[in-house]
Simulated scan of single mutants.
Amino acid sequence: MQPFTTLDGLVVPVDRANVDTDAIIPKQFMKSIRRTGFGENLFDEWRYLDRGEPGQDCSVRPRNPDFALNDARYQGASILLTRANFGCGSSREHAPWALHDYGIRVLIAPSFADIFYGNCFKNGMLPIVLPDAQVQRLFEEVEATPGFRLGVDLNSQSITTLGGRTLRFEVDPFRRHCLLNGLDDIALTLEREADIRQYENSRRALEPWIFDASQENLQKLYQGDCFK
């Protein structure tokens, strides 16, 4: 996982509350666990005018001209601004995969669904919770200012607007540490590799039959003789 420290990014607004994970990535696309290739189907039912299916050439599909991701002014956006309870519904990890694959690195909302919120950190994205009034003002500024960008600094837990205004946000210290250092669950486990190896070696010395793959010992394990 790539570390996240700072980002200066274009903002795209999705002005809807209670956006569930099936809206973020519809269920028919959940046929892969590769984490990539989902970006073109992000918000598929809102983004396109036909029903999407896996394997389609999205470049020739009819697009909804009223949806923000299809607006030229928001192309290349890496910050998603949205409303309360974003990411509700099923806990599918494909939802953050689709956002990340599209290029989103920061999400700003008044609240997020709990499981989705945690999945964002595990996939290298920063979900930021701000009060409703601050989110509303950001929506107004995005609408009024083509090319509206924000500077996000995880180390100082701050957002800087184009006008120089600073907004503060809170992040759990452990999640902040993991994101700053690019540590997902596997990387966290590997930080204790020496301890794990020491434990395995001590167990091998105490219970060698578990690690002995000879036919005789395998038969003993199956018969339970090692535990008599």
Rank of each mutant, 00 (worst) to 15 (best):
V142S: 06
N64Y: 05
A95K: 02
L154I: 08
L188D: 00
F38P: 02
P3D: 07
N41C: 13
A144S: 12
L162T: 12
E170Q: 12
S78G: 06
S156G: 06
P96N: 11
E93V: 03
A98V: 02
L10D: 04
M1Q: 13
T160L: 14
R73K: 13
R105Y: 04
F67A: 09
G164C: 13
R63L: 15
S111W: 02
R204T: 14
F43C: 10
N181E: 15
I24C: 03
N217T: 14
R51V: 15
E141Q: 15
R83Q: 14
A113H: 08
A113G: 10
R63W: 12
Q157V: 10
L183P: 00
L99G: 00
M125G: 03
A144R: 14
D153P: 07
R203Y: 12
A23L: 15
G163W: 02
H94I: 01
C178W: 01
D44R: 12
D195M: 13
D50I: 12
N18W: 00
P65T: 09
F67L: 11
Y74I: 02
R35D: 07
F86Y: 11
D71W: 00
A77W: 11
T36G: 07
Y102G: 00
A113W: 05
D195E: 15
S156C: 03
A133P: 00
V60N: 00
R203G: 01
D101T: 08
E170K: 12
E170Y: 12
Y117G: 00
H94Q: 14
D22H: 07
Y48V: 09
E170A: 11
P65R: 08
F139W: 03
M125N: 05
A194M: 13
L162V: 13
T6S: 08
G124H: 10
V60T: 14
L221N: 09
R197V: 11
Q157C: 15
P62H: 09
I115C: 05
P62K: 09
L218I: 12
L138S: 03
D8A: 12
F139I: 04
W46K: 08
G37L: 11
F169P: 08
L49K: 10
T5K: 15
N155F: 00
R176F: 07
P173A: 14
F116N: 04
P146C: 05
D15C: 05
Y222N: 04
R175T: 03
Q2G: 01
L49V: 04
A109C: 04
R47A: 04
K27A: 15
P110A: 03
V129F: 00
N119V: 10
E141Y: 03
Y199D: 11
P13G: 04
F169V: 12
K220A: 15
V60Q: 09
D22Y: 07
F148E: 05
S32A: 10
G163Y: 03
L138Y: 07
Q215F: 14
K220G: 13
L99S: 01
I24L: 06
I33W: 08
R176Q: 15
F116H: 03
E216A: 14
P26A: 13
V106W: 01
D15F: 08
D101V: 07
R165S: 08
A144E: 06
P131N: 02
F43T: 10
G37M: 11
P131W: 01
E141N: 11
S156V: 06
C88W: 01
G224H: 04
K220P: 06
